[in-house]
Design a protein around this nucleic acid. Structure first.
Lengths: 746, 746
DNA sequence: ATGTGGGCCTCAGGCCGACAA
DNA sequence: TTGTCGGCCTGAGGCCCACAT
């Protein structure tokens, strides 16, 4: 048993623990926040900051979400099965503790999977009583001490410790024809004691002291559902709820047990991840990726499509986002993958259609009297999508050259107009809370679009305006709006829907695919900042057939049904779907062949709201940011190591000579990894860094200190209740409004 | 897995289940009520009928007791360990459902331990891989099919089924020098598969179809505390509470898992047992017996003394009766026995002092002015004990010949006076609710003692009267009252207390022991009905030294402090302590040497309140009752079998020829067993009947039907919050008042 | 009557290379 | 490179009785 106190993350065998837990395990760092959901149940735990509005039916004291501070973690392993689990003491967050929370949300780096280990899934021969264990050659050479090949045969005794510090001894011999590494004596005892069967896995780890650690990982054979000898699962479940509710009500800590292999990534969710997910606009037909563990203890992403959005249990847990997405998988191995996921499980894959509303907003049903049509539709729709741009963004005087036939403003104009103002990009993948933006908007007379939307279009538009502004206030989304596909097409089957949409395209004779297809990147390049090189990076990294877009046409799920009906609510959270930026505008064409592999993020230029910058970053293109400079996208895989990276970054940001030395006191490089931890660049092996870096910041030493104190890394997100129809988003705004302006102006 | 629907109690292997669960297991019959406490925790579940007043601190929705109807029972056995447990669906009882409850409380007979079985604790040799299983000779001859001894050696194949219907095959051989029964082939597989170790037990059962059943029972080696892989025990516990509270609040059923071996008799308590326990007046120094399971799967009673009464957890579970009794054990093996028990775990051993108030009511402290003394004390005290008798019961004209020096009425006179009135005794061990009695009193002008208690004794008595009547109304006790010793002597250590009491006896020069001692049974016998023979029964069955009473002097814990102070509340629940009846009055002397083995019950003649009859039954003397006749006590062990019993009963009740034939339509014999189940006499083997019969009723067929429909067996008890000081007893009155008259007059 | 231990047999367990995927 | 098989050996498992309690 390993007890980690707050702040302590490194401990005996925690490496082994993490190895056994698997590559997808991400224990939230101590001091961070977690949103916690019970395992294996359709229900979700409760106690949001707005818990007064978000109750679980029939459990009046149980809120639907619980945001907690993680006090300490105790790592356990089942004495019989070696099943790993973490005991976590959680402190529900008082709504008034927000500042403290933000400050504490800078997690410490957690132990990762050890670099020196191997994991083998046991074969029938490995587990039969008849023989020993066949060690994969590379694994043996990498992990085991080298054999004395002068011996005949070469052999040695291996000693390894498991999670309980039990010592296991094996005879390691290199023999046979052809020669191979085998574990003989001692192996069968291990197998029978641990009750291993073919399909289970063993891990051998060589730690930094060259000691062998030994772990097991069970195959996903259905577990005996817990020993039910005492208490029903219902009671257990209610127990979690009640413990959480009680803790929330009394502001007292409570304890949960988190089994990362039984409930990978679902049970405990780092708040940042949860918040990020709240940005994601889900809709029927949306494409996404999701990570899965491979047999060999690696990870792989699988592509899928959202085929439905519905409550897992409409009666008891209405409007719960817990596994409310029904999904289909691209590959035939999909049987092993879940048919329902939660929004925080997936990585959306973008398609461009959300910024091309007309074909979809065009009604499939007979137009109703008084409804705006065609071009005005488009303009209004786009205004609705980005209302803060107001008239000022030039919709009228700059008909889009990107999408002929669409009255779409060029955001390049917009960007050009403001390029002289210093700005930074808000940290990827977290977006500055919209409430900040809203407050900033309200404080700047020249961009009071909220109150000054044009009314020239007549009463209908005026209605839209009020809808939009209300929604803006209500939802706190600072970036974009989408019609709520979920509420409209809740149970609309994908094929039918797709067909209908394609038909509507044809009916309107919009040369949609062709237009996108025909975009010449060159003609757009000239307006970016140094984006030529970036684009070339991208183009050399990605091939693919532009016609792939055809396959992606199915993606958007916004129904034209909802268009033009003022009281249909707009939903926030299109950040991942709308993408216009210095590099992003170039991607009108790239989207066509990169949608399968790219991921987009919406960025807001934080310093001044009229400098709003919306950016795109692929998974390989990492945003690099420096206060006072415009963010840049780089492909870290193009570099050989840290030196090369530092050199190029120094060149890019004009600070040659001040960045190359890691010890330099002028600037520090920090990065955000895939778990939203903020880490110093250079600490990790280069390969590991490349594999997990999400974005890089160039900070002054002062900024680093400030960051540590205040957590000002943009780890504040705008929630999005997405398409499942909850209405709890409003309360978040209040949460952030009170302090966001202050933190914004820091 | 065996699922028993409501009403179904007999099912495949339920016999085996009960055998494995052990002799102390008593699953409440379907349709009965249970009070349910969580296992292994200091806390208790909640939701009494008066739940509005009895909240668990900090869980405002959780009441402290939950009275439920048991809907159905599913018998389980752990697939790995064969650990048996029952899954029970409980329906909390709506306070207005009382009638339904009473009607449903007639349980069906549950499966008992099979008669034909043996249980052996495994030795080291039995479990070693080296050899087989040595079968005890008698066990083999009793359970296994007979061997063909013409074979050399005699051997056969045994096939037995376990709880999961798995079949196990063993070679049964009779060999060795000396010859013995052995299980060889197949045994070691069984041992290793079931993971049995020395100290565990195996059971072989031969069912009625002569099929072999095979069960295991684990030694009490500490279990791995549940697999904690998911959830903390805190959460689980709270889960039970919350599930129960939620169910109570919503009047919805919930499920519990009851492991009878992990929590014998504590976890689920049949309501009748609980109610009966509520009658028990506990006090420091009180002697009791408690049943424990023996190694060989039998039961044994151990004697103990109550050494303390205190909350197990004074902070969280104040005034909980859950293991609030601290006890000491008579035997040196006490280390294995619990130091804390609950009132329902024990069987009190009676002493006569509660009906002999003077020595104890006589103040140990200086008498206060205005207090009555001596004879008037005694009379008043006795009136207080049985106020409903009023003046009419002849206190004045019949000075007691039983206890010289005490102005105690002879209840024999009382009985004689009313013997012409038909009456029945209320079923043992349950007493007709006093509220019924009170209402009956009110409805009969000639016995309106409640409003017409004599006031001739002056203002003090009048005060007492009001106290008593108030208390009568408030507590619903129909039988007797005791001063609440617990509130006064809560932490009074036994030795000091005992000494003090004995001193007070001497100081007052009351020839107390001697008086009881010197009673001549013969002089009393003449007034009984046929009690001569009964007494002879008793005398021949019980020997012993009359001076044993000295050892029992320590028992009563009523403080003289409280005497004469009208506003000190009387506590109900002396039913087991007060004992006067046609046979009982004879026991003044018998008590002296039978207190260690006898158990007394208070009986009330239900039909007419002025026919109140208080009876004594020892564990061997069973009350036999017949509507229209006075109850009788018999010693069933004196009979050889059912025929003899029926003959004698027919003779006793003057229905010769109408009872001897079990198929007779005139009268039916039913009996109440030690689990309060009501069963037909004759269904069980005679020995089993003898071992578990508590009382017998002679009913007409019509009564049997009526009983089944209405549950009119008096399974309604007067609660006693005993000495732990809760004040929730009053609420029970409300529970019964509203319907008791109706049910009484049925 | 029954728990334990020694004698002795036998086959499951376990080490080996052959072979094939 | 490594999964599985047959060969072959050995000792744990298992049946027996003797002996002791």
């Amino acid at each position: 048993m390993v007890v980690l106190e707050a702040g302590e993350r490194k401990s005996i065998n925690s490496e082994l623990w993490h190895a056994c837990a698997g590559p997808l395990v991400s224990l939230p760092p101590v001091g961070s926040l977690v949103v916690y959901f019970p395992q294996g149940h359709s229900e979700q735990v409760a106690a949001s900051m707005q818990k007064e509005t978000d109750f679980i039916p029939s459990y009046p004291n149980l809120p639907s979400k619980l945001i907690c501070m993680l006090h300490n973690v105790t790592l356990h392993a089942d004495s019989e099965t070696d099943e790993v689990y973490a005991q976590m003491t959680l402190q529900p967050v008082n709504k008034y503790d927000k500042e403290a929370l933000l400050a504490s949300d800078i997690g410490l780096k957690q132990s990762r999977q050890p670099a020196e280990f191997f994991c083998k899934t046991l074969t029938a021969s490995d587990t039969s009583t008849h023989g020993g264990f066949s060690v994969p050659r590379r694994a043996a050479e990498k992990i085991f001490p080298p054999l004395d090949f002068s011996m005949q045969p070469p052999a040695q005794e291996l000693v390894a410790k498991d999670l309980h510090d039990n010592t296991w001894t094996f005879r390691h011999i290199y023999r046979g024809q052809p020669k191979r590494h085998l574990l003989t004596t001692g192996w069968s005892v291990f197998v029978s004691t641990k009750r291993l069967f073919a399909g289970d896995s063993v891990l051998f780890i060589r730690d930094e002291k060259s000691q062998l650690l030994l772990g097991t990982r069970r195959a996903n054979r259905q577990q005996p559902a817990l020993s039910l000898s005492v208490i029903s699962s219902d009671s257990m479940h209610i127990g979690i709820l009640a413990a959480a509710a009680h803790a929330a009500a009394n502001n007292s800590p409570f304890t949960i047990f988190y089994n990362p292999r039984a409930s990978p990534s679902e049970f405990v969710i780092p708040l940042a991840k949860f918040n990020k997910a709240m940005y994601t606009q889900v809709s029927l037909g949306m494409r996404f990726r999701m990570m899965f563990e491979t047999e060999e203890s690696g990870v792989r992403r699988y592509m899928g499509t959202i085929t439905g959005i519905s409550d897992l249990d409409p009666v008891r847990w209405k409007n719960s986002q817990w596994r409310n997405l029904q999904v289909g998988w691209d590959e035939s191995t999909a049987g092993e993958r879940p048919s329902r996921v939660s929004i925080w499980d997936i990585e959306p894959v973008i398609t461009p259609f959300y910024i091309c509303p007309p074909p979809f907003f065009r009604p499939r049903f007979p137009k109703q009297p008084g409804m705006p049509d065609d071009e005005s539709d488009i303009e209004n729709a786009f205004k609705r999508a980005m209302p803060w741009l107001g008239d000022d963004f030039g919709m009228k005087d700059a008909p889009s050259s990107i999408f002929p036939g669409l009255s779409l403003v060029s955001s390049l104009n917009f960007l050009n107009k403001n390029q002289q103002v210093p700005s930074i990009l808000v940290s990827d993948p977290l977006v500055e809370p919209a409430s900040t933006l809203v407050q900033e908007l309200q404080s700047k007379p020249d961009i009071r679009i909220k109150h000054e939307l044009p009314t020239s279009k007549g009463p209908e538009l005026s209605k839209y305006k009020s809808t939009v502004t209300d929604q803006l206030e209500a939802s706190s989304s600072g970036t974009s709006y989408c019609l709520d596909a979920g509420t409209i097409q809740h149970n609309f089957s994908l094929p039918t829907f797709l067909e209908g949409d394609l038909q509507s395209h044809s009916r309107n004779n919009l040369p949609f695919t062709a237009n996108i297809d025909g975009l010449a990147p060159d003609t757009l390049l000239s307006r970016g900042y140094d984006s030529q090189k970036d684009l070339q990076n991208m183009l050399t990294n990605y091939g693919g057939n532009p016609r792939d877009i055809d396959a992606e046409l199915s993606t958007p799920a916004i129904s034209s049904q909802s268009f033009g009906v003022p009281n249909i609510p707009f939903k926030t959270g299109c950040s991942n779907d709308v993408a216009i930026s210095d590099t992003g505008v170039l991607n009108g064409g790239l989207w066509a062949n990169q949608t399968q592999r790219m991921r987009t993020y919406t960025k807001a230029l934080g310093s001044f709201p009229h400098l709003t910058c919306i950016g795109i970053a692929s998974n390989l293109l990492k945003l690099v940011q420096k206060r006072g400079s415009v963010g840049r996208s780089i492909d870290v895989t193009r570099y050989k190591g840290y030196d090369e990276l530092r050199h190029d970054l120094a060149r890019m940001f004009g600070i040659e000579g001040q960045l190359e030395d890691p010890q330099s006191s002028d600037w520090k490089l920090v990065y955000v990894d895939h778990e939203n931890d903020i880490l110093l660049v250079g600490d990790d092996p280069w390969e590991e860094f490349v594999s997990c870096v999400q974005s890089i910041k160039i900070l002054s030493s002062g900024e680093v200190q400030q960051m540590s104190l205040e957590g000002d890394l943009g780890n504040v997100a705008v929630p999005n209740q997405a398409c499942s129809g909850t209405d709890s988003g409003n309360a978040w705004r209040g949460q952030y409004d009170d302090t966001s302006a202050a933190s914004f102006n820091r």
